[in-house]
Design a protein around this nucleic acid. Sequence first.
DNA 1: CGACGGGACGC
DNA 2: CGACGGGACGC
Length: 461
Amino acid sequence: MEDSSSKHMPENLDDPPNSRLFVVTSRCVTEDDLRERFSKYGDIQGIWLLKDKQTKEPKGVSYVKYAKSSQACMAMEDMHGKVLLEGTKPIKVFIAQSRSSAKHRDVEDEELTRIFVMIPKTFTEEDLKNTFREYGDIEYCDLIRNKLTGESKGLGYVRYYKPSQAALAIENCDKSYRAILAEPRSKNNYSEDAGASRGGGEYGYVDSFSQHTFPASADQGGHMVVDYRHGDITRSLILNTRAALTQEQIFALFDLIPGMEYCELLRDSYCLTKGPLGYALIRYNNLGSSVYAKEKLNGFEYPPGNRLQVTFYDDGESPAGRMASQVVTAQIMSTVWNGASCGQAVKSPGYSLSRIQVDFSLPSLKKLAPSDSKTKERLFVVFNPSPLPLNVLEDVFCRFGSLIEVHLVPGRNVGYVKYADRQCAEEAKALLHGRIVNGVKMKVMLADPPREESHKRPRTY
DNA sequence: CGACGGGACGC
DNA sequence: CGACGGGACGC
C-alpha cells in the first residue's frame, strides 16, 4: 500500500510538510556519512545527493527526507553547524522549500515556530499556554479578540522557541485544535486579494503549503476589489437593529470611527406604529472610514445579544432593510449572520424589521432558543428563485418556537434551520413547505444528518 | 432536484 | 554561498 523504499520518492517529498531537509556539506560527504549522522533523529525515508549533470561530481548539496516534520526539525536544530569530516567546513541544515515552491530562499525559523490554533472562546492566553506547553517552551501566546468587545474569537497563536516544538505540537496536540503553522505576520493576509491570488503560485510560501493546510473555502472573498469595481460601496452605511437604539447610542457607536459627518435615525417605513427605530443612516466624509466602520460594527453586539447589521447604502435603492448589492448581501450572509442568532433577551415582536408577505397565516412571533441550545432537528430549505434575507427567514421560522438559527449556504439557493425542539421543527416544515414568502418559493425538508467527524470539537459559539 | 465542514494577527 | 534524480507497472 505504502511505498516507502528509499529510492523511489514520488510525490511525497512534502508530505508531511516540512519533513525534508536541505543540507549543504563539503563535496566529499557521502550518503553514508549523512545517514550515519542523521538517522538518530527519526525514520529517514530517503537521502539524495545532488550531482553535477555533466561531471557527475557531488555538488555538496543534499536532501534528507524524514517521516515527520518534528524529526527533520530536530535534526536541523542539532546538526546545523556541525563538522561531519575532519577538516571540512561546518554543514548547513535547513528545512527544504516545498518542491512546488519556486523560491530557493532559506526557510526561516520565524516561519516554523508559530502555530495557529482553534480553541474554545473561553480560553485565556494562560489556558492556551497551559495547553500547549507540553510540546516545548513557549515564547508567547496570543488570542485573536474582537477589537471592540475584547471577546476571544476562539483563535490563537502560540510561539515556540524551536521549530521542533511547533512541529511536535502540530503532530501531537488534540486534532480539535486544528493546529497548523501560522503564516508569517508580515504578509498582509487581510486586505483579501485572495481572489486574484487563488490558484496562482506567485506568493512565496502561500502557494503549495497553504493548499496543504487550508481547506478550500466556498466563501466569496475579495469584496474590496469586487465592490469597487461594481461601485457598490459608498460613504453611507445602513444600520439595522432589532433592538431599540437611541440616536445618541448610534451616534456614539459610529463616532468611534473618525470622519462621521452624518448620523440619522430613521423609522422603518413598514413599521410606523412601532416606537423603536428600525434602521439608521450614517455617512462618513471618506470611503475608508465607511469601509472600516462597516467592517468593525457589522455583527457587533450592541447591546449584548443584539447583533447589529451594517451594510453599504446604495443610493439607487430603498434604504429600508435593503442590501446595497448582491455582493454585500452574500458577504453579510457569510460573515455576520452565519452561526449567529439574536439573543432572546432583546428579541421582541415589535422590533422585527422584516416585512413578510404571505398568502397563508403565520403564527405569532416566538422567542428564539438560547444560541447555545442543543440542536434537536434541522430543516433543509431550498429557495426559488433566490434565498430570502436572513431577517425574513428568522422572522418566519421563529414562529413555531425553539428556533436556534438560520444559516444560508453562500452561493447556493439553500439554507439550514436549527431548532432546539423536534416538534417545533416538524410544525415549521408542515406549515412552510411549498409556501411562497415575499415571492420566494420554499421547499422545507428535514435535513440529512451532518457528516460524522470523529475528531470534531463542538463549536463553542 | 438541492447540502453544510470552520481559520489570521493594529507594522 | 547552496535548491530538486533515475526510470517506467500494465490498462
